[in-house]
Amino acid sequence: MNHQQTADQELINLYISGDHSSIETLIKRYKKKVFTYIYLNVKDRHLAEDLFQDTFIKVIKTLKTGCYNDEGKFLPWVMRIAHNLVIDHFRKSKRIPVIGNSDEYDIFDTIKMYDECIEDKMITEQIHRDVKKLLDLLPDDQREVIFMRHFADMSFKEIAEQTNVSINTALGRMRYALINLRKLVKEKEIILSL
């Protein structure tokens, strides 16, 4: 059954009633967003794979036990689960994320660029590395709001609730994050376009 155009809530209902393929559609629909969010937080691909798996196992358990009640907001709900698992991980390991610049598998190494020429590919890869480094240079609260708003698709209202600040504070952090990114681009003379 082709579910590509089916709404999230309908897919959830189908899955709960026994249509296994519906969860596959939901996972494939949101895997990049969820995985990117986790990866940018933990900066370790293997750990990100584990946390991604744990996130969707929890999603499946919740759906199958009839405990899901999120009024159709599937992705923000999944993102909250992912976010909480990331936080749990850091609490358990009692460490903060490190800037990964080792030989490990890198997020930007696998971005698909088949249609581009090799030179463009190299420049694009450099831009991705630069953007990632710039994000790492932001203060924690500013980086967090970018992750939550941009990669986790949370509204500023939801971010405010989750981080116990006002909407204006959350917006202010985003504003400073974008301003600081611009400053860093200038300071480091980074060119963010082909």
Binding site: F52, F108, H150
Partner: peptide
């Protein structure tokens, strides 16, 4: 924001 959009990875 569009630069941030380019950062995407998949499991």
């Amino acid at each position: 924001l569009s630069k941030l959009d380019e950062i995407q990875e998949e499991p």
